[in-house]
Design a binder for these strands. Structure first.
Lengths: 188, 188
DNA sequence: GTCTATACCACGATAGAC
DNA sequence: GTCTATCGTGGTATAGAC
């Protein structure tokens, strides 16, 4: 028996993928119509406006990533957690042509309503707060290079990940993403 | 006597500003028409296609930034150079709503032709190579936190700047950009 | 070099039948 | 819930007069 997905979920999934590829202004209801196999008017039934669609896409994407973050074994060393985090970020790259949905929407943010901005901000903060805890642990263990307050360095580290996934796609190489990890790891 | 700017230069300048604000798909010939005061057909006279316009915009933007980079006093300490670099990046933020043109186009890269991708890559590499030299100097002086090979750390540092300018706009605070600097500076 | 006029297509969105 | 049909708008681009 074929695993069934609702039309609504298919729309949402394709919208996420397309936005990670081309951004908010780079995909259309027509694109989704072709991918899902329903007319654009049916998509408006589920998501009356494009802004509605984007907001729900961010929420779904965010839930998925944060759940994966939460399932990282808390008993690992900090440098091991950092490796897991890099892998997680690497997965968003897909075939090498996608970037983090929230990084992409941060680029498009001036065209988006406030509720989307708030959702993207929340995603950033959740990541930064997870990284801050990890850095604090790494500083204590002596496994990571933490030059400053953890919450402070965490924001820089997260920015480095967002920037690196952008550069990885630009140069078509995953290496740039992995370099972020090694720039924070201490080899004693 | 009024300082005169050619129509062509005005188009280019406004195109750069608009793209730093809303990206490649977020501005139109009509927008430029309103800002410069000529019809869209006149813009096509100077830049036959939008891709032509973008390519020239990148080249102009790149020249300006790299010239500013080149004019940073070579005799400064590395940590002082880093501060100058942060200021340079902060200037691109404008009223707080703009990001680096090449960072923005990196987000839109899948919709752009190869010659634009090459130009954006060249801009990234030029910045990274400047930062690598600065980091090498900082490691020798003991003024900067360089954990790894300079060329390697430089790519991470540049990614952190690109990511931070994105986050600065998202959260409407310049502080995030300035944090990058302090994450690499050593206070002895 | 700038204009008017226009072609042509893509877009988001809605009304209403089924 | 999905469709057909359509509306209005905005987009890039071109032809041709001035």
């Amino acid at each position: 028996m074929e695993p069934t997905t609702t039309v609504r979920d298919q729309i949402l999934d394709h919208a996420i993928t397309l936005m990670m590829l081309r951004g908010y202004n780079g995909f259309s209801y027509r694109d989704l119509s072709g991918l899902v196999g329903v007319k654009t008017s049916s998509i408006h039934y589920y998501f009356p406006s494009k802004d509605d669609l984007v907001l729900e896409a961010v929420n779904q994407y965010s839930s998925g990533i944060l759940a994966a973050l939460g399932s990282i074994d808390a008993s690992l060393r900090a440098d091991q957690k950092l490796s897991k985090y890099t892998k997680l970020f690497g997965r968003t790259l897909g075939e090498g042509d996608q970037i983090c949905l929230c990084g992409m929407l941060a680029a498009d943010i001036e065209a988006l309503p406030d509720n989307v901005r708030a959702a993207v901000q929340a995603f950033f903060k959740a990541n930064e707060s997870w990284l801050a805890k990890m850095l604090a642990q790494g500083a204590k263990e002596g496994t990571l290079n933490v030059n400053g307050k953890p919450e402070h360095v965490a924001r820089t580290l997260y920015a480095a990940y967002q920037g690196s996934v952008l550069a990885s796609r630009l140069f078509r190489t995953k290496a740039r993403l992995e370099e972020v990890e090694t720039s924070w790891k201490l080899s004693k």
